[in-house]
Design a protein around this nucleic acid. Structure first.
Length: 704
DNA sequence: TTCATACCCGTTTTT
DNA sequence: CGGGTATGAA
């Protein structure tokens, strides 16, 4: 057969073998930057060239964006047929399949997907109902309970095993937890709700218990590919096994040294166990790195060299030259931010586009200081990771109304919606819900509730709204109408900061207009939550000309010309949260490995000698242990001109107040500045009012 | 029901 | 330190 693409020319021998092996199970162990994505893209093209209908190919990836991107690339090199390949995350696939097969496990096609916050709300509701919230000081908080439940599901362990292993201090509560779990499962079942884990569990149950579905699905997806296999969990591995049972045509691709999702139940050993799940698996290793320069790879290899676990490969490159990774030891966060901003400006001078530069950090809030600095210098950026739009209270309020239109038995949404009405509290809300539950059409039944005069009007308005929203209209129109209803409520409950929150509502509206149906809109909101952050500085001319700020987790699979990894201090990276247990430190180390292997040409590492910790204020820090381990692979940044330090040392803090200065405040009168408490906060000792911490953004402080 | 207060806790990553 | 939560009073 003649192919339109010259595979042998485009791929190295290992990649080529992976692309040409179409039948049977294949495990590809692909080091960072070894052309893993390229291999998958070419394999999709190859399958299509072989005449496999694109709908018969399934590509499972970690985010839906990743799937879209790969299929777009396949379409680019071959033809647009490739875009018809089925692609997405395990969760989005399960969601689609359960709309079709959910009835087999007791779900109608309009079930609601709960995000983590909704799940916690439900758990909280049940916990209170079971009387587990009272005086029992020792009972875990809702977040912890949700985490325990989720771990058990994803790792396929019993509650007891999870508690014993990771939460031994709650062992006494095991019985109560088990009872709560039972109630939680039943509650979701009864109200047509599924949390993230249920999507996987129920899809698994369908596959497991219904061989005919298994066969049907096997015929539908004749070739399965799974990317980032090191970040799948036991349940997902089972799902793959069942879906591929019919034909065994499954290729999984991953890198055990890049596994960074153990916290949500992922198990990198899945990779090593894959050949046991599928006998006669062909194993292919991709070890040649095409991304980074040798000095960067040397550093990466040294990082992973210190890992407890011995990983399976060693990266090499044929690229020559390249600069040593640079370490800058900053005095504090402000200094760190200044350093980063200056280097970015220099890089831009050298012709590196902003979108080819990324700043990576362990936790979303680590970039706050830098964001201020970038805004000050008019450097446009986008930020990935951190707070999701959907996690804010006002967006949840709005979405709850929409959820009712699809699933009128979604009592979680009812509760939220009812509590917004003035005069309705938990008690009344409960009574109304008991009433609605009895009705076959709760939306229409709302007017029939014998309401007390104090809130009758509010209830009537809600009822009118819901009935009217139910009529044919685009998600965007529905949302517009909803906003008219919500506005007075919105300004009442968020009176202190609703202007800020209003921006989110606008953003939601902008997202909604991309959707034809409410169903798709809501499903995507839950399965692919849009990020909350809006860049502070909009790009002046080109939208794409933005610097990238990202958590390391959100940077997985991506690469940039120049990468900064900031806040490499003990407690920050590795996170203080991980300091206790060895496995967690190991995961932090892999996370650092992922961070450094994102860089193609330049890698800058920074460490602030002091930083602000939420509870303790300014603290002195130690350099990250990961830096100490690989010292000899790094060059320390030395300012050419020493006076640079001295100048900086006496420079005023950006707000302009210095200890000892006399100031005047309109309420507290005269005072003396003690110190800066933060970039925009100052501690002042007042003659009359004592010591106060003032927010410079609000306080009208004048120099005397 | 709502408001005020006291207190507790925990700082992370994401589908 | 600040936010959320539980508790108690009006």
């Amino acid at each position: 057969m003649r192919y339109r693409l010259d595979y042998a020319k485009e791929l190295n021998p290992a990649q080529l073998e992976a692309v040409r092996t179409l039948w049977g199970p294949v495990l590809v162990i692909a080091g960072a930057g070894s052309g893993k994505t390229r291999t998958l893209v070419y394999r999709v093209a190859r399958l299509v060239e072989e005449g496999v209908p694109p709908e018969r190919i399934l590509l499972l990836t970690f985010t839906r964006k990743a799937a879209r991107e790969m299929l777009r690339r396949a379409a680019l090199i071959l033809d647009e047929q490739c875009e018809r390949v089925a692609g997405g995350t395990f969760h989005s696939l399960a969601h689609i399949m359960l709309r079709q097969y959910g009835h087999l496990v007791g779900y109608s096609r309009n079930f609601t997907v709960l995000d983590r916050g909704d799940a916690e709300d439900a758990i909280n509701l049940l916990r209170t109902a079971l009387g587990l919230a009272e005086k029992r000081r020792r009972f875990p908080r809702k977040e912890t309970i949700a985490a325990i439940f989720s771990k058990a599901i994803n790792k396929r362990l019993s509650l007891e095993e999870v508690v014993r292993e990771e939460y031994p201090h709650f062992l006494e509560e095991l019985e109560e937890l088990a009872k709560l779990f039972e109630h939680y499962v039943r509650y979701k079942q009864e109200h047509q709700l599924m949390d993230y884990d249920d999507l996987l569990v129920n899809w698994f149950r369908v596959l497991k218990s219904f061989p005919e579905v298994r066969r049907e699905v096997g015929r539908r997806f004749e070739f399965i590919m799974v990317d980032e296999y090191q970040d799948t969990n036991a349940l997902q591995a089972e799902i793959v096994r069942l879906m591929a049972e019919e034909h065994g045509n499954v290729m999984v691709v991953g890198d055990d040294s890049q596994s960074i999702y153990a916290f949500r139940g992922a198990n990198f050993k899945n990779i090593l166990e894959f050949p046991k799940l599928f006998p006669h698996t062909k194993i292919i290793k991709l070890e040649e790195n095409y991304r980074s320069t040798q000095p960067i790879l040397d550093l990466a290899n040294a990082v992973i060299e210190h890992a407890r676990e011995k990983y399976t490969k060693c990266l090499f490159t044929r690229r020559e030259g390249g600069r040593l990774p640079l370490l800058y030891k900053a005095r504090d966060e402000a200094d760190q931010s200044r350093f980063v901003a200056e280097r970015i400006l220099e890089l831009r001078e050298e012709g590196v586009p902003l979108r080819e530069i990324a700043v990576l950090f362990r936790s979303a809030y680590h970039s706050f200081d830098l964001e201020l600095e970038l805004a000050k210098r008019n450097l446009p950026f986008v930020k990935h990771g951190g707070l999701k739009l959907i996690e804010t209270a006002h967006i949840k309020d709005v979405v709850a109304h929409l959820r009712l239109l699809l699933n009128p038995f979604d009592m979680l949404a009812w509760n939220r919606v009812l509590l917004l009405i003035e005069g309705v509290g938990p008690k009344t809300s409960g009574k109304i819900m008991d009433y609605l539950r009895q009705s076959p059409d709760p939306l229409a039944a709302l007017t029939g509730f014998p309401a007390r005069a104090s809130y009758a009007e509010g209830l009537r308005q809600l009822s009118d709204l819901l009935v009217s929203l139910r009529k044919e209209a685009s998600p965007e129109e529905k949302l517009n109408q909803l906003y008219r209803y919500y506005e007075p409520i919105f300004t009442r409950i968020y009176y202190d900061d609703y202007p800020k929150r209003a921006k989110d509502l606008e953003q939601l509206l902008a997202i909604a207009n991309k959707y034809e149906t409410l169903e798709d809109f809501l499903a995507d909101l839950a399965l692919e939550p849009p990020e909350a952050s809006v860049a502070e500085v909009e790009g002046l001319e080109n939208e794409d000309e933005k610097l990238v700020l990202s958590t390391v987790h959100s940077a997985k699979g991506l690469e940039w010309h120049s990468v900064f990894v900031i806040s490499l201090a003990e407690g920050r990276f590795p996170s203080s949260y991980a300091l206790g247990r060895e496995e967690e430190i190991e995961e932090e180390r892999r996370l650092f490995y992922v961070a450094v292997t994102r860089a193609k040409e330049n890698l800058f590492l920074t460490y602030p000698a002091t930083y602000y910790a939420p509870a303790e204020g300014r603290i002195f820090s130690k350099p990250s242990r990961f830096l100490e381990e690989v010292k000899e692979k790094i060059e320390e940044w030395r300012p050419q001109d020493l006076s640079f330090w001295e100048e900086e040392a006496v420079e005023e803090p950006s707000s302009g107040f210095r200890p000892g200065e006399l100031v005047w405040h309109p309420v507290f009168g005269e005072g003396k500045v003690k110190r800066m408490a933060d970039i925009d906060k100052v501690v002042v000792q007042f003659a009359s009012a004592g010591e106060k911490t003032l927010h410079l953004k609000f306080a009208r402080l004048e120099r005397l």
